[in-house]
Simulated scan of single mutants.
Amino acid sequence: MLKNLNPLLHADVLHALRAMGHGDDLVLCDANFPAASVARSTVLGRPLRLDGAGTAEAVRAVLSVLPLDTFVEHPAWRMEVVGEPQTLPHVQREAQAELQAAEGRALQFAGLERFAFYERAGRAYALIVTGELRGYGCFVFRKGVLLAPDGPV
């Protein structure tokens, strides 16, 4: 156990998050997502697992250490509900609250159509699959840089 680190962030997850560079994407998906097949084409090449975690707690854990990109309009995306792109299921509203709490600003998820989401997920650095059973608990986060008061660290 380490101080000040969420216990969900096991060694494999921390290694992947640390290895990512500015502009790399991280996918966080629910248990229904085809994680094994999609993760084969990611940089990491295999899914990481947080089987006991729901979406909100996984988003909270990841965003406790992952800086989001501030140089792009949308550093976070969600999978759109098929046929209802504006609908925000409860699982996405929970993730939205965690995103805003972590960022301390009114940051909204941008929507991605289901198959566009799969395509983008396959180009990500890493994919983390949670134990979330509710559908549409699928998100992409773009890694940013840490900023010191006088510029990048």
Rank of each mutant, 00 (worst) to 15 (best):
A35H: 14
C138G: 05
D12Q: 15
H10S: 14
A148S: 13
A95P: 09
K3T: 10
T70M: 04
V81K: 14
L66D: 00
A19G: 04
L17K: 00
G111R: 09
H90G: 08
V129P: 01
N4T: 08
K3A: 12
Q92A: 06
A148T: 08
G21I: 05
L28S: 09
Q108D: 13
D24Y: 11
W77N: 06
G45W: 10
A148D: 07
L63F: 01
Q92I: 04
N6R: 13
R78T: 02
L147I: 13
E132N: 00
V81N: 05
R60M: 11
R142K: 12
V27R: 06
A110T: 11
D150F: 05
P89H: 06
L50R: 07
A35F: 06
R105C: 11
V82E: 10
V59M: 15
E119N: 12
A11V: 14
A53D: 06
T55D: 09
L5H: 10
A97W: 05
W77V: 05
G135A: 09
P67Q: 02
A126C: 12
T70L: 08
P34E: 05
Y118N: 08
P67V: 02
V65A: 01
E98F: 00
R40T: 09
R105V: 08
L5F: 14
L26Y: 09
P75W: 00
E80F: 03
E84S: 12
R123L: 11
E73K: 15
L5G: 01
A126E: 08
P152K: 03
F71N: 08
L48G: 08
G83S: 00
A35M: 09
T87F: 06
P34F: 05
A56S: 15
L63T: 01
Q96P: 06
